[in-house]
Write a protein that binds this DNA or RNA. Structure first.
Length: 693
DNA sequence: GACTTCACG
DNA sequence: ACGTACGTGAAGTCC
């Protein structure tokens, strides 16, 4: 049986139409008409292969209704991920499976494609481009599929004007808010289109993100997924462009690209329904449809918007850092009495501990090297000038190489702005990830680091930066998850939670809490979120383990709900093998029942931390989609630029200040109710440092 | 590519 | 006796 687009088929075949929108079944009685159609479209090689399947009996040609499911048993996969990988000998090659792919390389076929798209409620599309960077790559063609085993590839013209006009013909379909868009790594395709002036709208279904939610441990590339779930090996991209070093899709014969691209679209389309069911099996329907998919186009917009930086200020700062690095380097060499590479932890460790013997029993790293990290150097700094100089040297080097020098290079010349890439489905807890460059670790803590943050500025005109920050979000979430009355009540009274904790632990009035007491309480509060251990806390506070154990014990006496919640969470994790956030996002913890106490302890801390960190991630993701939507429906010019886990940064159009402050605060507070008051702190300024509350 | 270090939440 | 705080990405060295 062969599936063809409705239009193609109704024109030429006059065959029965299936109940599924946009599809029709061409049964053997219609074969002559189909053969004629293929001949007319000069698709002889494909026709030959398709009909070969009919002309000779083929065991693969069975009615889907009676066919054994190609889907592997998901329970078996859970038990052992390696079982999900097909035996290579049983992989089918492309020639063995029935499918009908159209290369829409004539105006008539293009028109047929457009007509076919019209009635669809959902379709899969997959762009072929000259590279991996949506900002700079050129779309070569786009493949569509809306029913299994079919696909149409539309080559796109190379000339900018012709490209634009062809894309314009697709625009109504891509921007139709009532039509679901399916794709594997859909954000890439949507981004490429965004850089070409098309704003893809409508419900999204990214099969790659779906797969990361269904089986986070497995590989998520389309070829891998296809082999695992369809038991089918698509044409590898390397067959077309090799390693991609000296060849792009533009250099490949269009007919081959058509075959490859249509197949990818077809395969992706086939993932869709399978994954919808599996998401439901794994309880991820809500996370997928209500959090990740609404967020996808929002991330595309944020990446496309980019952010402006003051490159002149960074260049000047780099020079300043360079001279201070040179001075510190000279001083270190003088004190070491030797030339060596200060950037080499290995050489540095040998100088400090073999030559200078600054410590009796130097701390070693996991691999037996001397540790020279900041905590180690800081210990030595009290008695050794060389350690002080090294700490300063390291700080300055880091700022220069990672930020002052690297950020200006990341500016995209066409926009004069930095465009990061957000990854929404790679972290274990559900947080976003920013890369190329990472804009989620821009310095803010040190004075020197603040110079970097100052360089993030709004565009020219009546614009400012607005930063909105969830206050103590993770502690509020653990209060909500644990329902601890003391912790909840402290938040309801609007208290400074670290001070309140310190006062309660030491049984004094809040004004009597010293900075030292507050610092300790703050460390304990953080420790709680991380899945506290007496050893870890003693390390952070620089106190004896016995002492930190007492502090923890007092803390649990103060907030018994927390202790209870932790015990229950670990017990549930042991029983189910996973933990989940408030929205049901899961993280598997395969080591939770390990006999090795160290390994198990790590899994237990994950069990505590993941629901907390993950719920915060869910909350801000929901808020982002709603804020973006409200900004747009109200026709506002303010744009969301960055997300840094508990902070959103906006380029604020000043006349909108009152409206935007209200809507951002409201949407952030109401995104995901947890039964504890949510506080959002906001600041506005001429740069990110001054906007940061 | 592994390892170390360090920037952020 | 174990040798851990949770989650990331990037730069640099060294094999």
């Amino acid at each position: 049986m062969v599936l063809l687009s409705k239009k193609l088929a109704t024109i030429r075949c006059d065959a029965p139409i299936s109940p599924t929108m946009g599809e029709m079944l061409v049964h053997p009685p219609n074969l002559p008409a189909l053969r004629e159609l293929f001949e007319e479209f000069e698709f002889r090689s494909l026709a030959k292969r398709v009909f070969a399947l009919y002309d000779t009996p083929n065991p693969l040609l069975v009615d889907p209704a009676s066919a054994p499911p190609t889907v592997l048993n998901s329970e078996a996969q859970d038990a052992d991920p390696t079982k999900g990988v097909t035996n290579p000998d049983s992989k089918r090659t492309i020639g063995d499976t029935e499918h009908a792919y159209v290369h829409a390389d004539t105006p008539e076929k293009r028109q047929t494609l457009l007509d076919s798209l019209k009635p669809l409620k959902a379709f899969c599309f997959d762009l072929e481009t000259t590279g991996l960077d949506p900002k700079t790559c050129r779309p070569i063609g786009v493949a569509f599929s809306w029913s299994a085993h079919t696909g149409t590839y539309l080559p796109l013209p190379a000339g900018p004007a012709e490209l634009a006009s062809t894309l314009q013909q697709l625009q109504p379909f891509l921007e139709n808010p009532d039509v679901e868009k399916v794709g594997h790594n859909l954000k890439y395709d949507v981004s490429v289109l965004r850089w070409n002036g098309i704003r893809v709208q409508g419900p999204m279904f990214d099969t790659m993100i779906a797969h990361t939610l269904i089986d986070p441990e497995l590989r998520h590339g389309m070829d891998d997924v296809s082999e695992m779930v369809l038991n089918y090996k698509p044409i590898p991209i390397t067959d077309l462009i090799g390693d991609g070093k000296d060849k792009t899709m533009a250099d490949v014969e269009p007919a081959r690209v058509a075959e490859y691209a249509a197949e990818d679209a077809d395969v992706t389309w086939q993932f869709r329904d399978l994954f919808e069911a599996r998401l439901a099996d794994k309880g991820q329907t809500k996370v997928f449809f209500e959090i990740e998919m609404p967020l996808l186009p929002v991330l595309v917009e944020m990446e496309h918007a980019g952010i402006r930086i003051n490159t002149d200020a960074l260049a000047e700062f780099s020079i300043q850092l360079g001279s201070s690095i040179a001075n510190l380097e000279a001083r270190v060499r003088e004190l070491a009495g030797e030339e060596f590479n200060l950037n080499s932890p290995k050489q540095l460790g040998e100088i400090l501990f073999d030559k200078l013997k600054l410590k009796e029993k130097p701390k070693k790293t996991r691999t037996g090297q001397y540790a020279t990290d900041e905590a180690t150097l800081e210990e030595l700094a009290a008695n050794h000038e060389i350690a002080q100089a090294l700490v300063k040297f390291r700080a300055a080097s880091k700022l220069k190489s990672t930020y002052a020098d690297a950020l200006p290079q990341a500016v995209f010349s066409r926009t004069g702005r930095i465009h990061t890439t957000y990854n929404q489905a790679v972290t274990a807890t559900g947080r976003l990830q920013s890369q190329n460059p990472n804009l989620q670790n821009i310095p803010v803590r040190s004075d020197l680091g603040q110079e970097i943050r100052k360089a993030f500025v709004p565009r020219d005109g009546p614009f400012k930066l607005l930063s909105a920050d969830y206050s103590q979000i993770e502690l509020r979430i653990i209060a909500g998850l644990s329902q601890d009355p003391g912790l909840i009540s402290a938040f309801e009274k609007g208290k400074d939670i670290h001070t309140a904790t310190a006062a309660a632990v030491h049984d004094v009035m809040e004004p009597m809490v010293t900075p030292e007491m507050r610092r300790t309480a703050k460390m304990v509060n953080f420790g709680i979120i991380y899945g506290i251990s007496a050893f870890g806390l003693s390390q952070r506070l620089g106190i004896a383990r016995r002492q930190s154990a007492d502090i923890i014990e007092n803390y649990f006496a103060l907030y018994p709900g927390i202790k209870n919640y932790m015990d229950n969470t670990i017990a549930l994790a042991r029983q189910r093998g996973y933990v989940e956030t408030l929205t049901g996002r899961r993280r598997c913890l395969r080591d939770i029942n390990s006999a090795n106490a160290v390994v198990r302890g790590s899994a237990e801390r994950n069990a505590i931390n993941t629901p907390v960190q993950g719920t915060a991630a869910d909350m801000i993701k929901i808020a982002m989609a709603r804020i973006d939507s409200e900004l747009r429906t109200r026709g506002l010019k303010t744009r969301m630029l960055l997300q840094v886990h508990d902070e959103l940064l906006f380029e604020l159009f000043e006349p909108e200040t009152t409206i935007v402050r209200e809507l951002v605060e409201r949407q952030m507070r109401e995104a995901l109710p947890i039964g504890v008051p949510i506080v959002v702190e906001m600041g506005i300024g001429p740069d990110w440092l001054q906007a940061h509350p």
